[in-house]
Simulated assay, not measured.
Amino acid sequence: MKTNTILSLSFLLLLMSCANAEKEATKEVSRPAVKQENNIVQFTAEQKKIAGITTGMPEKRGMSSMLNVNGLVDVPPENVFSISIPLGGYIRKTNLIPGMMVRKGAVLATIEDQQYVQLQQDYLMAKNKLKFAESDYIRQKGLNATKATSDKLFQQTESDFNQQKIMVKSLAEQLQLIGLNPLTLTAGNISRRIQIYSPIDGHVTKVNVNTGKYVNATDVLFELINPKKLHVNLTVLENDASSLKEGQKIVCTTNRNPDKKYLATIHLISPAIGEDRSISVHCDLENYGKELLPGTYLNAAVKLNHASVTAVPDEAVVKWENKFYVFTDEGNHQYKMIGVEPGILSEGFTEIKSPLPAKNIVMKNAYAILMKMKNGGEEGA
């Protein structure tokens, strides 16, 4: 009886021991592998190897960012020609339409008016009077030399001659203004019509007249552009303007063909700020063809240079709940999550604006640590 009682107690103790062992094992399995204190996560050497975690010190890098702006293809003022006529008249013929290509010296329009006839008549008559005034001057000069005539008469003759020279010269210049050559003008080729010629090889962008219309001296008949020199007019916000300087390179693309790159150089930055708090930046295009026309909308990327900054690989920065973090190596396979302020992103690196501790930073697979930390925290909750 006594022996049976001892055996029963021993069996009961054994059962209790097994139950306690099983309970401890269960606790060990459910225990989180993450220390939540101070945002520290614990890895084993094997876990670190499997996750591919590497560490290193942040480095100083000369980084640059891209400023994206918009603009239009434009033509410098010296390459835009407004065509007018110094004397009014009626348009008798013009075949121009916007978009046409014209060569230098080509006839743009034919204009007629009676004042052209009057101007040619006045020139030829003044020219004939000049011949008489010149002959009289020479004759009076000879007589005055022998005192056959008075000085007063000679001076009057000389004055008339000089005035007539001025008149002929003035009328000749007026003829040249309307495209007539005074040297070839004779009584036999007086015409009521004149022609307007193109001063450049270029494209017609505006036609403001039609056949039969009367134009005044102040009217612009046509507008031509020289397509051999185009530039880009960019619109840049006031806050971004301080980052730009003359000589910077930009890369432009069109919405129609975004794969085609056009290179340009900043030529001039306007000092005036517009009502929309933006400024105009003028850039010289370096490579373009006939497909790029004035008025074309462009997307432009300006490369901004910065001084040396503290940077880490992009993989070192993680984002959690709209905030950015990196992990410091605390030793013994422990990593601590600290908040940072990122800056420029360039060539696989991220600028860190906020100060970092003098410790190694997780450079690769930082997200593996973040996932272990957050998942481990949920299990331990």
Rank of each mutant, 00 (worst) to 15 (best):
K261M: 03
V232N: 07
M1G: 15
N95M: 10
S346G: 11
G89T: 06
Q120S: 11
E37L: 05
N39F: 01
T146N: 08
V312M: 00
R139M: 05
L67F: 01
E158Y: 04
K228T: 09
A241S: 12
A316Y: 06
T310H: 01
Y197M: 07
L153C: 09
F81K: 03
Y197N: 14
F11A: 15
K35C: 08
Y335K: 09
N257P: 08
L263Y: 10
A366N: 00
H333L: 07
P355F: 15
H231Y: 02
S82P: 04
V251Q: 05
T310I: 13
Q155T: 12
Q155V: 14
Y325R: 05
V117G: 09
R61M: 14
P357M: 00
Y325T: 05
P258I: 08
N4I: 11
T211P: 03
I40K: 05
E291R: 01
S308D: 08
N375Y: 11
G52F: 08
Y116E: 10
L171E: 03
A316S: 14
E330N: 14
L221V: 03
S278Y: 11
A187I: 13
K48G: 09
I338W: 14
T186L: 09
F43E: 09
G380T: 01
I266F: 13
T110N: 01
D160Q: 15
T235S: 14
T94V: 01
K323G: 06
F324M: 12
K147V: 10
L304K: 13
L124P: 06
F11S: 15
K303Q: 15
R61C: 09
D314E: 15
S84R: 03
H231C: 07
Y335I: 01
V69L: 03
L14A: 11
T235Y: 08
V318E: 12
P86F: 02
L177C: 05
N255H: 14
N208Q: 08
T205M: 10
L268H: 10
K165P: 00
P342T: 04
F349Q: 12
L124R: 15
Q121P: 00
T254N: 04
S170D: 10
A148M: 05
P58I: 00
L15N: 10
A51L: 10
N20A: 06
L370Y: 02
S10L: 13
L177S: 03
N210D: 14
E321H: 07
A33P: 03
V232I: 03
S278A: 07
E112A: 14
A187E: 11
T184C: 11
L9T: 07
G99H: 07
G274E: 12
K260M: 12
I194V: 13
Q248E: 04
Q120R: 07
D201Y: 05
I111S: 01
D329R: 06
I111T: 00
I269R: 13
L185M: 04
N20H: 05
P32Q: 04
I138V: 15
G295M: 04
A126N: 13
N128Q: 15
N322I: 11
R31K: 14
K261V: 04
